[in-house]
Structure formats: C-alpha cells, structure tokens
Computed example of a mutant assay.
Amino acid sequence: MTRSFLDVVEAWNGESVVTTFDSATGAWMFVALHDTRLGPAAGGTRMASYPAPVDGLIDAMRLAEGMTWKWAGVGIRFGGGKAVIAIPDDLGDEARAGLVDRYAAHLVSLRGAFQTGVDMGTTPEDMARIGAISGYAVGLVDGKPGDPGPYTARGVFAGIRAALAHRFGEAAVGARSVLVQGLGDVGFPLAGLLAEAGAALYLTDLREDAAERAQARFGGTVIPAGDIWDVDVDVYAPCAVGATLNPDTIPRLRCGIVAGSANNQLLSEADAERLRERGILYAPDYVINAGGAVAFAAIHQGERDETRLRAQVDEIGSSLREMFEEAASARESPLHAARRRAQRFLNANGGPSAGAR
C-alpha cells in the first residue's frame, strides 16, 4: 500500500521538508533538510521518475540523512540535505529546461538554507544554470560547472585500496578482481582507475551499451545485469542505484569486499550485520563515496590546486582504515564505527539537534 505524504513526514527524524508542485510539468520538488547543526544543508539534486510522488519524497529523506552522516563522517561543516525532483516519464527537453529554472528560483526562496550540486539525473550544466539564477550551486569555478564524478571515483578507489589492505593484508589492486556495477559518471572513471592499476575488471550496467563502452575503453569482461550474483570477485563495487544489499542478495554475494559509490546501498542497517556474518568487509557508502563532496566543499571555500584537492580526497582511504580497525576490535560492522565517528563530530561541532529526534 502506498504511504501518504503525511505518514512519511510524521515518521521522519529530520528537521523539515519543503515541497513544491510544478503545475507546468506535473513534477514535484522535495528539498529535505535532515540536520543543520554543522551549517546550512548541502547535497545533490536528483531528477528521476518514481512510481508515485511520495516515493520521491521518501528518496529525498533517505538521501538527506545520508548527507548528514557523509559531511560529519569526513569532518566537513555542512548540514545534511538533499533534493529530489520527481518528474513524469514523458518530460521533454524544453519542459525540463523550464523546470530547472523554476527549481533554481525555488532555491532562492529558501535564502541559503540549501545548497546543491549534481546527482543522478542532473548535470554539471544544470548546476551552472541553477548557480546563475540562485547562487546556491556548489562545485562551480568562475560560474563554470565542475563534475564531481572523477573525484568521487578517486575516493572510491582509495577506499578499495584501504579495504584490500584490511581484508587481505595488501593494498595492491593489480592482483585483484573487481565488479563495477553501473558505468555512469562515477563507475566509468572508477573502472579507468582500476584498469590502470591492473585489476581484473568485470563490468555491468542495465544499459548494455554503457558496459560495452567501458569495455572498449578499459578492457575487462561485460556481465549481464542479471548474472552479477554468480561472479566470483574480490570486490563488488555498486555504483548505481541503492538497496542492492538486502536479505535476498547478501546470501548470493561471492566477494570479500563491498566498496562502491552508490548511495543507500543497504536496504536496512541490519544488512550491515548480515555482511559481517558472511565475512564480507563493507565500506560504509556515505564515507567511501564522499570524494565529490570533499572536493566541491574545498572548491566552494576557494581551493583551486588540483594536487591538494586530490590529496584531500585520498584521505578517505585513511579514514576507512581507521574505521575498519575500530570495527574489527569491537567485532562489529564498520557501519557502526562510521556512525560513531560522524556522531562524535556532530556532538563536538554542532551541539544539540534542532530536528525532531
């Protein structure tokens, strides 16, 4: 049964959701602010079609909470927020352009409570337009759009090396096999980094042509999307939709490590324990996929030196090593160590929550 808007909002532990209906297109805009103790909320804007508008609202809320833990987990003073624009399936290019402009105007009305960047379904060019209208897009350099994907991929690569070192005692990627699921803005450059390091690549995407493009560029083996659970690999790197780790799929996994860029990889937190019980090392998604957020936060604060930006992103590997060690000592999932780290930063820098807790 579809849940109502009221039921969803009443059950949420965040601070607020600003909801707008765009009558010109039939789209819904949801800006979810989960926790602003560390500062104004920042997070991507996702544009996608959903079975019902309430599903877009739920997605915005889940993603906003993930941003709270992401910013706190890497020690950056932004609040957790996310926006979802739930669009009809038949939205044309002209209608989409008008919708982006009206969304930017909507951000102006929030007066800086939410700053945004690229997410699934939006582009760097969208952010340049949103930034020009509203002034609330991050990742722009002199008004020109940046692409967070390569930075996110670099952070995932650093996280994979950290996980390999913890799980197998050696960070070298060259002797390992990696299944990259999703060859988009992050999965594609991640595949390139892995190929350059000598990994045995397995590539899969719901869009077969995307996997074939990656194979033509980097080599590797294309795996049909429905067959990924039958492939023996050292690392499974989910880089597409969330909730691929759940009670149905975890028993089928044939890997030693899960380390990828997708948001909300676990259907529920209980799935982290299911992974641990199977001896699979899980790199918490909101830490390992923070590379784009780390880089764009630094750019937003004036950093322009590419070497320093990359070094900040590479620190994700060091953070994950500490979490893996803490979790191993406590005989628990790294998810718990990641959450404690984030909570410590929130408590030390943000004070009591203003949200409904």
Rank of each mutant, 00 (worst) to 15 (best):
V180Y: 09
P124D: 05
G39A: 07
A104I: 06
V241H: 13
D7V: 00
A354Q: 13
G44M: 02
D93P: 04
W229V: 00
G117W: 07
A175H: 11
S23C: 07
M323N: 05
E196Q: 09
E125Y: 11
G117E: 11
R154E: 11
A330P: 07
F345W: 06
G39T: 04
D101P: 07
G279L: 13
N246H: 13
R274K: 10
F168K: 15
L110H: 03
Q215G: 07
D89C: 00
A216G: 13
V74R: 07
N264T: 08
G192W: 02
G226V: 03
L164D: 14
A72H: 08
A27N: 11
D89Y: 01
D101H: 11
A41D: 00
V141D: 11
V186K: 12
P51A: 14
V294G: 04
V9Q: 03
R340Y: 04
E326C: 00
A262G: 05
G350N: 07
G302C: 03
G155E: 15
G56T: 09
A60L: 08
D248F: 15
A104N: 09
E196R: 04
S16E: 14
G184E: 10
V233A: 12
A243H: 14
V54C: 01
V54P: 01
L203Y: 04
G220F: 10
V118Y: 12
R207L: 07
L281M: 09
R62A: 09
Y103E: 13
G317K: 05
S268M: 12
G302V: 01
V235H: 10
L33H: 00
A72D: 07
A42P: 02
R176M: 13
P40Y: 00
M47V: 13
A105N: 12
Q343N: 09
P352I: 02
F345H: 13
E326Y: 01
G192N: 08
W12S: 12
R111K: 14
Y103W: 05
T244E: 02
G159W: 05
R111A: 11
A95R: 15
A105F: 06
A11W: 01
R321T: 10
A272R: 06
S16A: 15
Q181S: 15
A327C: 05
L206M: 10
A197I: 03
T2S: 09
L99H: 05
G26N: 06
A297L: 05
P238E: 07
W28I: 00
V17C: 14
W12K: 03
A153C: 14
V186Q: 08
A342P: 10
I280M: 11
G143V: 03
P124A: 01
R3S: 14
D119C: 10
G80R: 01
V84A: 03
S134R: 04
A338Y: 01
S353E: 14
G174D: 12
H300N: 09
P352K: 11
L335E: 12
D55G: 02
L275A: 12
F78P: 02
L346I: 07
D305S: 07
D55Q: 09
A172D: 15
R77D: 14
N349A: 05
I133H: 10
D271L: 09
F30H: 02
E322A: 15
A32S: 15
P247I: 05
P88Y: 08
S333Q: 05
R304C: 05
R161H: 03
A60N: 08
A162N: 08
F157E: 12
G242T: 00
R340Q: 09
